[in-house]
Write a protein that binds this DNA or RNA. Sequence first.
DNA 1: ATTGGTGTATCATATCACTAATACACTGGT
DNA 2: ACCAGTGTATTAGTGATATGATACACCAAT
Lengths: 141, 141
Amino acid sequence: MEELDGVDVAKDKRSIEIVLDPGSGIPYYRQIILQIEMAVADGRLKPGYQLPTVRGLAVELQVNPNTVARAYNELEIRGLVSTQHGTGTFISDKEIALSDADREQILSQLVRGFVSQAASYGFTVQDLVDYLIAYHEEGEK
Amino acid sequence: MEELDGVDVAKDKRSIEIVLDPGSGIPYYRQIILQIEMAVADGRLKPGYQLPTVRGLAVELQVNPNTVARAYNELEIRGLVSTQHGTGTFISDKEIALSDADREQILSQLVRGFVSQAASYGFTVQDLVDYLIAYHEEGEK
DNA sequence: ATTGGTGTATCATATCACTAATACACTGGT
DNA sequence: ACCAGTGTATTAGTGATATGATACACCAAT
């Protein structure tokens, strides 16, 4: 916590901005999850970074510590973060947290749900493939 | 209900087999929705076909008529079926129920949600495209 | 108009999801 | 050992969700 040579030590702790929208109909704990997911996905949070403490974030968001804890807990189950009791909650390397078989299973389940949902709107799998490819190329430019 | 000349009249009414799994954790009304969605998606139910009546299906599934009605109601909101009070519930042409622009918008939203969700598990869009294509080819054989 | 079919509306109830209050348990530096 | 910081567990209250009981309303054929 000191600066030996005038250079700030990397604290691996970034303040991530989390905002709750009470009128969204989305539960608080889920809003927290989503925003952390996003931050990880787009690189704002990197492996090793410490998340705000349960209490700290709870005060900031004017919410019960349990609500934050629940979000963190669910993120840990998914392997996105790793918590040390008494120390804090940190972003983990998601890639290696799950076995390939697990990832395969999850992906399968996600796709199945997606296809089913889209089918109810009359979309075929071919539609989805086409659109997704377009979406992919879109994101690259 | 009679056969004048020995030929069954086309009734536009097919008995679609719906099965409820009490242990799946999926609500009955949702299971009904899903199975009808699937049947429409793969062509077992075509526009104009009449669905089982609310009461009939309720008795068959040993469930309250309200539960079936709820499923049908939700399907109507999505435009997948059309109900005539006092007459019955029928598959509608979903394809033309929505404008192309609406469909595009919905598809976009679905894909966005799917990609976001998958991203939280560390999957890239490329992963999704690959898997979806595999899934598609799988379904064709 | 009556009747037997259809979907609909209202209310009750059991269960679950979400959040909070509060107390507990672990960790690291002093 | 202490203490200030961290996450955790238990319990309870509120609201939403899912289902059912029951009565109502519409339609078509007679």
